[in-house]
Every structure is written in structure tokens, then in C-alpha cells.
Design a binder for these strands. Sequence first.
DNA 1: TTGTACGCGTTATCAT
DNA 2: ATGATAACGCGTACAA
Lengths: 339, 339
Amino acid sequence: MARRPNPKLSDVARAAGVSLATASRALADPGLVRRETRERVQGAASMLGYVPHGAARALATRRSRTVGAVFPPVDNPIFAAATQALGHQLATAGYTLLLAAHEYDPSAELAVTRALLERGVDGLVFVGMDHDPELFTLLAQAGVPYDLMWSLDPARFHPCVGVAHRMASVRATQHLLELGHREFAVIAGHTAHNDRTRERLAGVREALAARSIELRPERIAEAEFALPQARAALRLLLERSPGFTALVCGNDVLAIGALAECASRGIAVPARLSIVGFDDIDMASGVTPALTTVRVPAAEMGRRAAARMLARLAGGAVAHVEELPAEVIVRASTGPAPR
Amino acid sequence: MARRPNPKLSDVARAAGVSLATASRALADPGLVRRETRERVQGAASMLGYVPHGAARALATRRSRTVGAVFPPVDNPIFAAATQALGHQLATAGYTLLLAAHEYDPSAELAVTRALLERGVDGLVFVGMDHDPELFTLLAQAGVPYDLMWSLDPARFHPCVGVAHRMASVRATQHLLELGHREFAVIAGHTAHNDRTRERLAGVREALAARSIELRPERIAEAEFALPQARAALRLLLERSPGFTALVCGNDVLAIGALAECASRGIAVPARLSIVGFDDIDMASGVTPALTTVRVPAAEMGRRAAARMLARLAGGAVAHVEELPAEVIVRASTGPAPR
DNA sequence: TTGTACGCGTTATCAT
DNA sequence: ATGATAACGCGTACAA
């Protein structure tokens, strides 16, 4: 079937018997026109099924009412809640979220960012602190505001909203120390290009070092955020250096995987092994009371990021670094079994 | 600091000493200009840090190189893998994914779709079959191609790529029947505005009905896709109508929750209760060999959806309805315990 | 309150 | 192979 081209504003104007300018005003800022003309225009618009042409509008106003998000994909389900909250809040304010993922490769990140800038995004959101310096050159050059989510910039240079992974990790580890544990192991997420996993691991080290306890290299395993990999990591740890009574997992998926491995080996949790994990996707806290978790406020982070960006786009000021609480939630844990 | 406006194509042209038209061609279709001029233009472009203005281009070409995805948010982690695959494939072809979520509310879906159309998306992807009829009116009017993901249109009216939820559910149930189970219970995802959950539930009913086995209403519980809710659902079932030996869960999150509840009650799985679940986010298959799962090829679905859309945008034809396999993966299951 | 006319940055259609 | 110029659809000074 032959399709007529979509009606344009001039069609609406003609149908309403007004000029282009009046039609534009009637739809964009109804307060500027007489009630009667406004209604005629709005009537004509909905009669014709008029849909504004965003590109033309963007060209004229030099704003696109879109915000771009650049996310690493590997641990993508981790960002689902935050992405959703972000998009939802933006939509409420008439903005649309442009989503771009990249493999964990800084140059790819640059490329997708460039693509978003071409699309004319009004603002950008990134994850974490690990980025190609050139990225920030690009952003400055484009004059586009940005936020880094999830982490807090230690240098307080970049605007960001996130949690203090390291301190949360320290506190979780201290909890285990206070229970009397001295033999620790860690299953961490891969630390390459990922400051969140690095900081979480560093927190364990820091808390242990404060009590002069060493975290032996063979008691550390890195794993992908997936259940089979987590199970394999625990097997590796048990094989390489058994005898630990406390296990810190960089993530809820890792914690659940470890728990599953324990179950299949008859290792009682938390009686014989205490496990704590960061609850990135809110799985660990629900699956069992046997795990102690660090709550990561993902959805809230998305909402805050949206609010910050919207405020800034509206010309307002926002806190440069915004810290959200990551509480340690003790569901169950016991001290080490006596030798 | 005072920011100069971004360089435009005319700036590049001037710097290269060529006309606007030549500059445009040199960047867009390098084959059309002499090698030497092309290099002058490209040099000038990168010198100036030129970034094309997408809105202007979209206005001139009447294409945005953008595809929109409209997702329900409730079970959002479920779509993470598909979203990522979709976005990644599109990016590879120079397209960007515009993401919009909505509460499970058909009118909200219409609104966000309208927002995406205003942004000038070249194509749209939706989830499932449950949509406001007006949505399709809108799409037809806009002349924008679309695909429905996850499900298959029984009426074969809408273009879609997905799995046969009902048949997969039938096969999973048959598996349990063949083991000798006769007493079934179901924990389903909420069925309102969600054809996937409805079809999965219907599949159980269908398989049982074929053997003249009734699925009693008190043996059916609906729950949100979250662990605590799944546990509560199992408690409810056990309280309302104990005695079932097989449990079909509409989702891996539900299955894991049920498994956790079993663990805390000392119900052996699969020895005393066989559980099967759809593996939406690929959790169930990894956490334990105790569960039988139906594999949902989420990432592949995202890739296929992208491929279909790209082919169509390039003027090619694609299968109207594309079915992806959802295999039943038996990890472990046993027949019912003798009475 | 409404209308006229120009500009937004790019591509595409003509000439040359 | 290159250059001049007219769209593309909308917002907005400025004029009326």
C-alpha cells in the first residue's frame, strides 16, 4: 500500500488555519496562544496523527533530549536494575536513554561514545573509574556533561555517584574477623579494566593487613560472574590451599556459586565456612539466610544518576561526588569451627 | 573556559580548501573523490576533531540509524542478555539501540513508543504478544518496521522471533509424566499482560490434560520473579495442597527460590520433589544439577532480532516468524517416591 | 496574539 | 571530480 509521508507541522498549521509559528507554539508552549487557536491546532494535530520530527527539532534547538549510557557488557545483568531505573526516571522527564554496550576494551568504549555523541546526546553516563584518558578529552571537547556510576572517584576529579566498594569490603571483612576468623579466601571478579572488583578485593586485603593477617595468593581466585565459574573457583581454592574458614565473594553470583559447590560437597554454610558477598543483582540475600551480604543499591543509583543529569541539563548544580550507602547485612554467620 | 562550538562540516571544507559538497562526499563515500582531496579532507576532519551532527544528517537522509527497543521492566534482568546482544549486533552495523522501558501498562507502552518514534527510530523491537491494538495502528501509520521478540505469534500475523513457550512447557511436563509423576504443582510468573508466563502455564495444563490429569487450582501459585516471592509461593502450595511430587516453575529465579525453600525444609531435590524451570537468565542450570531446565536462548534471540531488523532496513526480506529452539535439559530428576 | 523569514548542519540534485 | 544550491522539519527573533 502506498504510504503518505508523515504529516509535518506545516500540515497541521494549514489544517488549523494558522501559521507555522503559531502551530509550533500551540504545541510546544500552549500558554503563548489563545485558548481557541490552541485547541484548533491541537485538534488538527491529533486528527492528522502528527508526530514531531525529533531530528528537525534537535537541529533547531541544539538539544536532543536524550542521554547516553555506556555500559560494559560482561556483567550486564548486574546493571539491569540501574539501567531500568535510569531510563525510567529520564523518560518521566521527557528524556530517552540511548544505550551502548562495549566489550571490556577501552578503545571500543571510545568508539561507542563517539557514536553516542554523533547522535547528539545531551549527557552521558559511564560505569566505574577505568577509562581511556582520551575519553575525557573527547567529552570536554564535545562539552557534554557526564557522570560515572557505581564507584567514587578517589581523586574527586570526575563527577560520580556510587558506593565505596573498598570501605564496604573492609567492613564485611571486619565482621568476619570479629567472629574470630583468621583464615580467609577470596573469589573475586576479574580485576582487569574493572575498578569495582579491584576495590572489593583491596578492601579485604586492607582489613586483614590491619590485623597483620596475610591474604595468601593461592587463596585468591578470579572468576567470571557466572555460577559454573564460581564453583570451579571454589574447587580450585580448596585444592590449592584448603583450611580457610571464611570466604569473601566479590559478587552475589559468585557467592551463590560457591554456596552450590559447598552444598554438593557437604560443606555446611555458615557452620563450617562463612561466606559474604556483594549483592549486585540482589540474588544472594534472597536465596538463603546462610549468606552475609553487602547491599548494593543499584536501582537507587540509577535514579540518582538520572536526577543528577536532569538537574545539570536544567542548569542546576549537583554534588560532585555523591556517595550511596552499601550496608553489610548479616543474615547468618558463625565463627570458625574449633580445631 | 569559553568553549568554541563544535566544528561543522563547512569548517572542515574550508580547512581542506574544498567545497561543502566535496567534504561531505569525502567522508561519506570516499570512492567519489580523488585520493588526494579525500586525504586532505580526512586530515582536516581529524585535525579539527570533527564529529558529524546526527540530527542534521537524519533530517537530510530521513534515517536515523537507530533502532528502538521497548521492554517491560518487571523481569528486566531477564532481558539483559538479549538487550546486550541486540545492541552489540546493531552497533557493529553502525546502528545504535534506543532503550525504553515501561511499567506493565499497555498505555505506558504506547507513550514510550511514541517517544521513540519522535526520536526517529528506523525500526522497533517489542517483547511478547500482549500489546494494545492501537500500538500497531501507530506503527503502521509511522511506517516503521518492527519485530516481536521472545514469543511466536500463533496467528502468524506479526513478524516475530522467539521460542515456543507452550510446546517447551509441554515437553518438560511430559518428561515428568514419563518419570511417573502424577501430582503436579506450578509456580508461575504473573500472567497479567504477559503471554510468556501464560503460555508456559498453559503448556503444563495441556500436557496433563492429555493424560486426563487435572491441575488443581490450589496447586498453582503466581509469584513475582524474585527469590523471596518464589519461596513464599512454595510455602503457600505446601500449605494449601501438599502431596505433589513434581513442581514446574515458570522461570529460573522461581526454581532457585523453590529450591532454597526446599533446602531450608529438608525436602530433598530431586529425590522427593522434582523441579523443572525455564532458564531465563541462565541461573538454574548453573546453580545445581538438581534442576531440570528449559533452555531459553536469550542472547541468540537478541542477535537474531538484530539481524532481522538490519536485513529489513537494508531492503531485504526475512522470515515472518522465526522459531528458536528451547530445549529441555535434563540435569537430574527422579520419579516420585513410592507411597 | 499571530505571522514572516531565517538558521540549524547535512545530504542530494543539479551543473560545470 | 568538484562546486553551488535547494531541500529536510522545526524553533524563534523580529515585525506586525
